[in-house]
Structures are given as structure tokens and as C-alpha cells.
Design a protein around this nucleic acid. Structure first.
Lengths: 300, 300
DNA sequence: GTTCTTGTCCTAAATTATTAAAAACAATTG
DNA sequence: CAATTGTTTTTAATAATTTAGGACAAGAAC
């Protein structure tokens, strides 16, 4: 009752597959070679060989190994791969917080969360430890975790930080060479914005996705691991709140489209000051949208 | 052999102290009250009461509790508080990496590190998970961790990021009101810089500390949890590398002092452009120092 | 009957123990 | 002596254990 032996089971089946391609009587290569074939350590290979020998698939004679019979599908062992929940834990966790509108200062139960997300407590603990670097969660004095959550201060600080990063990206973008792929991306985005603007009455919901694409294109110019890490969180949070604050959604989105187009115009004109000003204006709008969506939650 | 019972032991001694102030025959208050006195849950209080009763210090009679005898120092139980190594794990870990010049792509052994730092593997795992958010370490495909380390790319990206944050701080600083404490701090820093400049021949080692104080004062103006979190790491890394690159240390530090003074001058003149330019110049120097210290390590 | 106190039980979190896997080292064989 | 295997040690993942916290119910005291 310790760690799972998935690794061994998978290796065993891989080795079976390897043997199935041979004919009976063929000698098998050395353990080292087999371990490379199966992509595991020699320890695992030896366990597999022992079982193969027990079941009479191979014969071990000193240091020689012969295939006694060609294995079939019935020889395989079950491998109930525990689904690796760590995959998109971040997405799912943020989604959970935002979707269920978990309030700030909520105590988080590792055990419960681990159940809901289908991961071990250990994995969840590590994940929370990571998030604590973003100030999103914190350890409680007597053990356990607490969601520091989307308070007003958090939103303001996040918006400020976003502004700093994005203005930097804008400044770098203006300096990008003419053959940089970003210009094509921006041209495409302009098209999509114009199309959406013409259909705003019926398709205004589609803006959220477009907003994400727009900011991603801009920030993509900054090749920086620190920036990239933050962008993931930032975009997710803004994306969700955009979708939720339903007050005057159509007007807001129509206005935002124009703000985006103003940024694109200025960028294509290589006018750094104008681009910065346009970006600043848009991010100010974005920030107040985020804040107002928080206010609505406070009230209701 | 699970978690320590330090909490229980400390609570027990606290309750003893409480009883020592009473006289024999005095009735004790309810469990709930005692739990507030000792600052623990009722569960712990009950365990303490059971022991007190076993040792004949108190008598439990239905719901009444009487003090049989006034406890003395001999009744206390040992409490060997395990030192909380989590305290400054971050400092010590970065110190270790930098001091022993651990190269990039080094596999990190949780077991070994936990031993050296005197923490449990669990705690170290959580810590590494946190660091992975900064891209300093990463999980290895088959379990375990790897130090991604101070490569050239890392240094460049870190410097870039620092530049972005610090220019923002500078811009905000210029706008700070005249009665903001930062101006006094800057005035003090100017003094210290001038003093050090006059003694540069003998005291040039002292610059590293001064550099740290200077950047801290500037960045302190930005009240932002995300910025603050990064500053911790940034300052530590630059601080160490400053101390190590011994090539032309005196000249470098003398030059850096002048760069700092130029920033202070511009700030006090409320000249945003000049301050930004001066900061940019200083950070450029700082960056090349960091890079050259990496190059030296590569060679040697 | 209401309120305070305690008994009981359940859940959570920290930490140890256990197991699988990897790696290092020694021995052996061709 | 080079390749291979046997053996041992170490590491990392995870289940099990234990302490702690809290909820609820039963009962006593007023």
C-alpha cells in the first residue's frame, strides 16, 4: 500500500509487445537494452523478466534468455492508469473558485479539494504551495490553507500589475521588425474585431474570446518566463469576470472593440505614445469592469 | 509515529501553570473554558485532564473537577519543540545554490536536501513546488526535481523583468507627495552614498548592502503583492552575484555609486525622464555584471 | 424548558512507514 | 577486460497512522 506499480505494469506490456514481434526460440537482449526499450530502470525490467519466466513465456538460463512462446493478448496485465489529475489542475481550480464564487478568506480543505479534483492530497498541497507565490492562497497559522481570494485589493493590485506588464509589451511591440509574425496576427485580429463590431447586436458574447486573443497576441512578444507565468493567471481571471458581469454587456463590449482597434491602429502606425495611451485607456476600462463585477458579488 | 504531540504537551504545561496559581480543593472550570485558557481545542484539553486525573493532580467527579494538590515543576512534561525549519528555508536554499554554485540542470534530491536543511521531505517538496512558479526548478519527467538554475537566459529574463518593475516604481516615485517618507529615505541614502564614495578605496565591499537598500527603497513605493514577491527573489540573486564577481570590484562599485546618485538627483528634481534614463543606465550595468559573473563560472 | 457541559463521533492535516523505482556498486561470465 | 547480471542503497510516491479540531447529541443544572 505505497505507490502504484503502474510503471511496472506498463513496462511489462511493452515488453510483451516487443516479444510478440519475435518468434519462439529467439534470444532476448541484455537487461540494459530491454530497460531502454521499455523506458524504465533495470529494476523494473528484472521484475518483468521474473514474471515472464514464471509464466513460461521466456526461459532464463544463466545469462541467456530465450523466448519460449510468442505471447498473445491474454498474457497482458491490467493497468488501471490513475488519471493524472495534475494535468490541468490549475485551470480546474481557478475555474472552481470563480464559477462557484468562493469568497475570500475561505478555509480550504485539502482533503475535500483532493476528492473533488481527483488528485492525492499530496499533489494538491504542492499545487497550493505554488499558488501561494501569487498570493492567491496562504497557509493558516495552525495548518491548512486559506483562500485569500478576489478581494478588492487583490483586483486592484492584479490590474496594476497587468498594466505594467502590458505597457512594456506595447513598447516592445512598436520596436518589432516589419517581418515579425505579430503584425500579421494584429492584422487578422483587426479583421475579426471589425466583423464582430458589425454583428455586435447578436454576437456580443463572442467578445470575451476575442479579448483573450488580443491580449495574448500583444504579450506574446515578451519572451520572459516570469511574465508568461503571470499571464496565465491574469488572463484566466479577467476572462471569467468578463463573462460574468452581465450589466450592459453589449455596450461594454462594443466600446472595448473600439478600444482594441485604437491600440491596433497606433501600433501599426508605430506610434509608441499613442499606443501606450490607448492601451492605458482600455486597461482602465477593463479594471473597472473587474471591480464592478466584484461589487455586484458583494451585494448579492 | 505520526505527527508530534507538541501541541498537547505545551497545553498540558500551560494548564499546570494555571492550576499552580490555585489552591487544593478549588473546582476547575468547564472544558470549553480550559480550552480557551490553553488556546487549544477541547480534544487536547480532555487528553490533558485525563493525564492530570491519572497522576492524581485533579479528581474528576461527574461533571465536577477538583484540584487535589497544587502541581509543582516536577509534574511538567518535556516538550522538545522541533525547530521550525520552514522559517527561512527560501533564504537558505538560494544561499545554498549560489554559494556552492550549483550548476543548471542539476537533479535535486528531496531526501538529501531535506536532511541538509533540517526539514521534512514534505516541507521541502512544497517549497520546491512554490519555486517552480518562478521557473527556478522544475519537475523531472519521472519524478523528482531539477534545478533549472542560473543560466544565461534566466539571468537575461530576470534582468528584463527587474527593469520593467523598477522603471514602473521610478515613475510612481516621481509622483509621490512631498511629505512621503520615501524622500527622507532617499536623502539618507544620498548621504550614505557620498560617505562611501569618499572612502571607496578601503570600504568598497560595503556597497553590496547599500545597493540592496537603494533598490528596496525605490521598489517599496509600489504596494503590490505580486511585485513584492518577486522583489524578494530578485534582490537576493543580484545581491549575491554582486558580492562574488571580484573583477574590478572597486571600479564597478565606484561607478555604481555615481549611477545611484544620478537616479536620486533626478528623482528629487521630479524629472521623470531623467530618472528613468538614469535607472535604465544603472540596471544595464547591473545586468552586465550579473552576466559576466555567470561567464566566469562557465569558464572556471 | 432552556442553557451549559460533556460524551461521542467524524473529518482533516501532519508525519511516519511502506513500497516501487532508480541508481550505484560489486561480482561474474564469456 | 568488457559486457552483463546480482546485490545493495537511496530516492520518491503514497497509504496508514496519529493528533487535532469541530459537530452534534445527550444529559445535567438551573
Amino acid at each position: 500500500m505505497a505507490r502504484s506499480d503502474t510503471r511496472y505494469r506498463e513496462a511489462y506490456n511493452r515488453l510483451l509487445d516487443h516479444c510478440a514481434a519475435l518468434s519462439a526460440g529467439t534470444p532476448l537482449p541484455a537487461e540494459t537494452v530491454l530497460s531502454e526499450i521499455a523506458g524504465v530502470s533495470r529494476t523494473v525490467v528484472r521484475r518483468c523478466l521474473a514474471r515472464l519466466s514464471d509464466l513460461g513465456v521466456i526461459a532464463l538460463d544463466g545469462r541467456a534468455k530465450y523466448l519460449l512462446r510468442v505471447p498473445g493478448p491474454e498474457d497482458r496485465i491490467d493497468v488501471t492508469r490513475s488519471p493524472d489529475g495534475r494535468e490541468d489542475l490549475e485551470q480546474r481550480f481557478l475555474d472552481w473558485i470563480l464559477r462557484f464564487d468562493v469568497p475570500a478568506e475561505t478555509p480550504l480543505s485539502v482533503a475535500e479539494l483532493a476528492r473533488t479534483f481527483g488528485v492525492t492530497q499530496h499533489q494538491l498541497n504542492e499545487f497550493l504551495a505554488g499558488l501561494s507565490r501569487f498570493g492567491l492562497v496562504a497557509r493558516r497559522p495552525r495548518g491548512g490553507w486559506m483562500l485569500r481570494g478576489f478581494t478588492k485589493d487583490f483586483a486592484i493590485e492584479l490590474s496594476d500589475f497587468r498594466l505594467v506588464l502590458e505597457l512594456d509589451a506595447i513598447a516592445k511591440l512598436v520596436e518589432a521588425p516589419v517581418d515579425h509574425p505579430v503584425w500579421q496576427r494584429l492584422a487578422d485580429l483587426r479583421e475579426r474585431h471589425l466583423i464582430l463590431a458589425s454583428q455586435i447586436d447578436t454576437h456580443f458574447h463572442a467578445f470575451s474570446k476575442l479579448d483573450e486573443a488580443f491580449h495574448e497576441a500583444i504579450n506574446d512578444i515578451v519572451r520572459n518566463r516570469f511574465v508568461a507565468e503571470f499571464q496565465k493567471v491574469i488572463s484566466l481571471i479577467f476572462h471569467y469576470h468578463y463573462m460574468w458581469d452581465k450589466t450592459e454587456e453589449k455596450q461594454r463590449n462594443a466600446a472595448a472593440i473600439q478600444e482594441h482597434l485604437a491600440v491596433i491602429d497606433a501600433l501599426e502606425a508605430r506610434d509608441a505614445n499613442r499606443a501606450a495611451e490607448a492601451a492605458r485607456r482600455h486597461l482602465r476600462t477593463s479594471r473597472s469592469t473587474l471591480l464592478s463585477s466584484l461589487r455586484h458579488h458583494d451585494l448579492g
